[in-house]
Design a protein around this nucleic acid. Structure first.
Lengths: 141, 141
DNA sequence: AATTAACTTATAATGATTCTAAAGTAGAAG
DNA sequence: CTTCTACTTTAGAATCATTATAAGTTAATT
C-alpha cells in the first residue's frame, strides 16, 4: 500500500509527493519485473491518473530512483534508454524483432571464465545481453 | 595501402570516394582494435586531412561499414553510440571512470550456461560487458 | 568529353534528454 | 493552524545526437 512507498521514498531522502507515489505504484506495485522507457512510463501515469504529468518530473524521479538503487538502467542499442525495476545483478534476453525484453534469472546463466583485469582494477558490474531471433532466420538449406 | 581499401569498398558496393578512403585509413590501417564515436572520428579525419568533412558523410559511411560488417556497434550506457573496428563476435571491458574500452579475447571468457529460450527463437548475438573500477572503491574496513 | 547515378555537403528537422525560471507544495517551526 | 523555507513540479526553451533534405559535385560508364 501507499505507506510502503512513502517509507521507501523517505529513506532515500525523497519527499513523497503525489507524483512520486504515483510513479512508485506503477513501478513497484507488481510481482514481475517491469521494463520501461521514460515516455512509456509517462503515458501509463497519465492514463492511470487521467491527468498530465511533466516529462521533467518523470525524468527526475526515475533518475532519483536509479541513484538510490531502486531501478537499473539497461544498455541496449537504439535511441531510447530502458530501465528495469529489477535492480539486482541480472541479465537479459532481448528480441529485437518484437522489442521484448526478458530477465534472465541468475541460476539460468553462468559465466565460468572472466578475463584478466588491468592492474589495480576490479569488477564493478557484468552485463550480459542475449539477443534472440526467430528460428526461421538463416535456415539451413 | 590505398588499393586494399578500394577493393574492400568495391566488393561492398561502395564507391571509393576520397572521404571513404580517408575513413578506411583511420579505421582499418592499424594493428589494434579501434573504438570510436562518430564525432571523435570526424575530428581525427579533419586533423589528418586538414580539411572539413560533413558530419552526414561520417554517419553515412560508418553505417555503410556497419551494414557490410566492417564495424560493430557497441551497447554502452550514455548518450553516444560507440563503434568497434573489431567486427568479430567478442566482448568488452569497460572502465567508466576513464572511459577506456578494451576488447576481451574470446579465449579469455566463457559462458558455460545459457537460459532456455522462448519457443521458436534462437540466439542471434551475445554481448557481455564487464565494467571495472579501481580497487580502492568499497574497500574492506 | 557527355551522361547519370551515386555521393558529399550544409543545413534543417527530429527526437531524446536536460535546463531554467516561475509557481506550487510538504514539512518544520512557531 | 499559519508562516516560512526549501524542495518540487511544471511548461517551455535549450541542447545534443542523429537523420532527412535538397542542391551541388564527382566517379564511372558511354
Amino acid at each position: 500500500m501507499k505507506n510502503h512507498f512513502i517509507d521507501r521514498l523517505r529513506t532515500s531522502g525523497l519527499r513523497p509527493t503525489k507524483q512520486r507515489v504515483e510513479i512508485c505504484k506503477i513501478l513497484f506495485d507488481r510481482k514481475e519485473t517491469f521494463h520501461f522507457t521514460i515516455d512509456r512510463l509517462k503515458k501509463i501515469i497519465e492514463k492511470n491518473t487521467k491527468s498530465k504529468i511533466s516529462l521533467a518530473t518523470v525524468y527526475n524521479t526515475v533518475h532519483a530512483f536509479k541513484n538510490n538503487g531502486y531501478v537499473k538502467e539497461i544498455s541496449l542499442h537504439g535511441n531510447k534508454t530502458f530501465f528495469d525495476t529489477n535492480s539486482e545483478n541480472h541479465h537479459h534476453l532481448y528480441d529485437q524483432e518484437t522489442g521484448d525484453l526478458l530477465d534472465i534469472r541468475n541460476e539460468d546463466i553462468l559465466l565460468s571464465k572472466v578475463p584478466p583485469l588491468p592492474k589495480g582494477k576490479k569488477i564493478k558490474k557484468i552485463e550480459i545481453t542475449i539477443s534472440i531471433e526467430n528460428n526461421s532466420h538463416n535456415q539451413k538449406k
